[in-house]
Amino acid sequence: MSSLYRLTSQSYSDLRRILSIKTKPLGEILQEADLISPFQLETALSNQIQYPDLRIGEILAKSGSIKPETADFFVRDWSKVLMEQEKNAIGYYFERAGILNQEQIEVILEEQRSTGVRFGTVAVFQGFIKSTTLDFFLANLFPQEIDKSPFINMYR
C-alpha cells in the first residue's frame, strides 16, 4: 500500500475532528465556543421560522448576539482554518472572527511583552474573551497547547 493512503492514528484523529466540526450547524459551533447561549440559539431558531429567508448567522447578528464578522468567519473560514497545516497566532483568528479588535490585541500584546504570560490568558484576564472561548479555540486549532499552563512564562 502506498504511503499516501496510510493514516497515522494522529492524522486519523485530526481528520475525524475536522469532519465532525465541519458538518456541525453554525449555532452549535457558536454555542460550543461559548459565543452564544442556548437561549440565544433557541430564540434565533424560533425567529428563523418567521423569517425563512434569513440564515441563523444573520439572525444572530441582527439581534446583536454576535457580530456579522463572527458569523461570516465560522460559516466561510472555520473549516478551512481547521485544515491548515500551518496555523497563525491565536490572536489572528480572534481578530478574523470579530471577537477581538486591533486595540484589544495591542493591549494584550503589551501585557504579554511585560509579563510573558500567554496571549489567551491575558485576553481572558482583561475580560476580552471567556475562558471557555479560549479553550474552544485552543482545542480545535492548537490541541497540543490545551494542557499547558495558562501562566507559563513564554520568555524562560
Rank of each mutant, 00 (worst) to 15 (best):
M1D: 13
M1Y: 14
M1H: 10
S2P: 07
R6W: 01
L7I: 08
Q10I: 14
Q10T: 06
S11V: 10
S11D: 12
D14A: 09
I18M: 14
S20C: 14
K22A: 14
L26Y: 02
I29N: 00
I29V: 13
Q31H: 10
A33K: 07
D34Y: 08
S37M: 10
F39W: 06
F39P: 03
Q40R: 04
L41P: 06
E42I: 03
T43V: 07
S46L: 10
N47W: 01
N47F: 00
Q50Y: 12
Y51C: 08
Y51G: 05
P52F: 02
P52S: 03
D53G: 02
L54C: 03
R55F: 08
I56T: 04
G57W: 02
G57C: 02
G57S: 07
I59F: 00
K62G: 11
G64V: 11
K67E: 07
P68K: 04
E69G: 06
E69K: 14
E69D: 10
A71K: 06
F74P: 04
F74K: 00
R76K: 12
R76P: 04
R76F: 10
W78R: 08
S79I: 01
K80E: 15
L82R: 06
K87S: 00
N88K: 14
A89I: 05
G91A: 13
Y92R: 07
Y93L: 09
R96E: 12
A97M: 02
G98A: 07
I99S: 04
N101A: 13
N101G: 11
Q104N: 15
I105S: 04
I105Y: 05
I108F: 10
L109C: 11
L109S: 11
E110P: 08
R113A: 13
T115E: 12
G116P: 06
G116N: 14
V117G: 04
V117N: 00
F119N: 07
F119Y: 12
T121L: 00
A123K: 01
Q126A: 03
G127C: 03
F128P: 03
I129E: 08
I129P: 02
I129R: 01
K130E: 05
S131K: 08
T132I: 00
T133P: 06
F137P: 08
F137C: 06
A139K: 08
A139W: 01
N140R: 03
E145T: 12
E145W: 11
I146C: 10
I146L: 15
D147F: 11
K148H: 10
S149G: 05
F151P: 05
I152C: 04
I152T: 14
M154V: 11
